[in-house]
Write a protein that binds this DNA or RNA. Structure first.
Lengths: 240, 240
DNA sequence: AATAGCGATAATTTCGAAAAGATCAAACCA
DNA sequence: TGGTTTGATCTTTTCGAAATTATCGCTATT
């Protein structure tokens, strides 16, 4: 269930924010679902105002949409948004990776290797369907972050992170349909090698292909779930 | 004064959000200033919770920073942030402009010409110190938006807009010191011509120079105001 | 004299009730 | 019958008080 976790956000609203973010990213809260305060109040055990604050911040992150005075809904997934998101991510990731390769030091290299190792081991331990694991997703995110973390631009990193999280919602959808993610771990290794070899052109090209192919997979396997531009309105929160 | 405006945000919190955003961008609320709820409550004539919601959203926009449970302050300006912001803006604006030139239609061209005309006329009417005018700032923003509006990427446009607004705070600081902005209107015309001539390389280069030169101006004229990485804590809200 | 502990004050954060607004359906009129 | 208005119900939005947490000055102790 959603409750029971205690992510140590300093303030209670910050705590709820983080928990809701994870629940949206991992599709516990389904795209397009209406977010009724009563239901959420029970779900996260906080009051109106606290919820409202968390919701507001998620709006600014693009994970929730505010509809005038008609409340909030989980940001819908659409093919148009996925394709747009992909292009913007390619732009940002390429630049961040180029800069990181230019500026990264030994600690940066070590962090990449370390994170890759953890991801690789976890993958072996989890077996075939590793990509369904929430833990693996986390390490996978950390690996991709490690690659660009030395780019030296806080603003670029922040933008990248938000885009990455939004893209994760789409990846999550397709992963339910057993895509050919067997090849992905090879890609990760190849990318790491190009990065450590300080080859910005090759690394950027590989990252771009990595991102675009993932998108193609999503479109192929789960594209029918968000036809047109809007999802068929997801199930209600109460329906959980 | 700050009060008295009525930006037609649908909800009251949305209204306060917009008003605060403008006040921060235009430095009515000074960088680094502590935002005390009592003072803000009088200033915007709303209650705690409503303020809190507006504040929260501004945090996610990067215009306000939340300090644990020690309240909120207006996001400080720093040299490091300005330089970083400049680089990211160059990346985003170049790409957006390239796409807009590729995809823009007749309506797009018309909008650019129209907005430029309004900016130009207002400039003549206002005389030498046009750049101090809040109205001119608004039209100037609309002109730059018009240039990239046809890029076809909602996500890119949203990111661009937030970066543009944050950069405006720095421009505002330097404009108090009469920079050599006489040349800027020539630049705007040159950029427009390159865009309408559908020359993406030239247009992107011009935009990049436009952005970087503005930054250089800011650093030269107002750089001493935010030494190190943090502003000397700005005046308090109550001190207005 | 400097520092740690304590208490009073001032701020933020959270809460649930009350106000404002939207939705839906039944009734009414053309 | 079709379309519009009215009213009842449910949801969101706003409010100000209460609880929580930080801040600052004071005293006592080393």
């Amino acid at each position: 269930m959603t409750d029971g976790r205690k992510l140590s956000g300093e303030t209670r609203a910050g705590d709820v924010l983080q928990r809701m973010r994870l629940d949206i990213i991992s599709c516990v809260l389904k795209p397009g679902a209406k977010l009724r305060f009563e239901a959420l109040k029970d779900m996260y055990a906080v009051s109106f105002s606290t919820l409202r604050e968390a919701l507001s911040r998620l709006v600014a992150e693009g994970l929730v949409v505010a509809e005038g005075q008609r409340g909030f809904i989980v940001a819908p997934l659409s093919l148009a948004d996925l394709l747009d998101l992909t292009d913007v991510r390619v732009l940002v990731e390429r630049e961040a990776l180029r800069l990181a390769i230019e500026k990264g030091d030994d600690r940066w290299e070590a962090e990449i290797i370390g994170t890759y190792h953890r991801m690789d081991r976890l993958q072996n331990r989890l077996g075939h369907e590793y990509y369904l694991s929430e833990d693996w997703s986390k390490v996978h995110g950390e690996f991709h972050y490690a690659l660009v973390s030395a780019c030296g631009s806080p603003n670029l990193l922040e933008i990248r992170q938000k885009l990455f999280e939004r893209a994760h919602r789409y990846r999550r959808m397709s992963s339910q349909f057993r895509p050919k993610w067997r090849e992905k771990d090879v890609e990760h290794r190849t990318i790491m090698e190009a990065v450590l070899a300080r080859d910005p052109k090759r690394a950027s090209d590989l990252i771009e292909r990595h991102i675009r192919e993932t998108t193609e997979n999503v479109v192929e396997h789960a594209g029918h779930l968000f036809s047109g531009g809007l999802t068929k309105s997801g199930a209600d929160v109460a329906a959980e």
